[in-house]
Amino acid sequence: MATIETNKHTDHLCWSCYQPTGGKPFCPDCATILPVPPQSNYFSILGLDAKRMSLEPERLEEAFYALSRQVHPDHYQSRSPKERQIAEERAAVVNVAYRTLRDPIARTEYLLELETSSPQEHRDQPPAELLSQLIEIEEIVEAYRGSAGAERGALKDFLKEVHRSLEARREATETELHEAFELWDRLVAEEGSEEAKASLLKRLRELLHHRSYLTTTIRDLSAALAGEPRPGS
């Protein structure tokens, strides 16, 4: 076997035959299923390039299905308890990884989590302009809830229009996210500067934030138009 960097750490040795594993899901020597290495992330678990953000859903799905066929506990029913447990654990991690990465929002949140020590620290304010608009909309929603007759009809038409425009804005954030993903992938590939990365991460965080305000307002608005009480109250 070619020289593999020997690592004294047991996580890099097969638990069954004690040969080096190179961080693969299966031992290259005895093909036994291996536990998820502690330093892995969702990208590496799905066999993707490190922190690659532009992902095609079809490719992702293919990777997910192929891995599931390999590690799903259904196929380990007649194996030893230890192998069964490892398969269960691997399958669980593969499932969580796929769920996270296939959704652009969850994927962004995950990248931010990997790149910044504590995501909680960066609770930026949404842009003042958006915030004041949203507050205004919430006021109209309140008025609509208490309205009747012709006034109600007019308010309803108006709110429907607002609903449409908010949806359009939310979709626009999605497009912006994808553009940012491409920029990010280029930065990673070309080993761009740390400042460039940091500012792009900040941009991503703002986009998510923006979006989450929009989502809450859209939810309230939909509930009001459907004649339901405010969600969560």
């Binding site: 669980a92 991690v93 499932n95 969580v96 796929y98 769920r99």
Partner: peptide, 8 residues
């Protein structure tokens, strides 16, 4: 609707 097995 999370695929199982799963963990948190």
């Amino acid at each position: 609707n999370t695929t199982i097995p799963t963990r948190a």
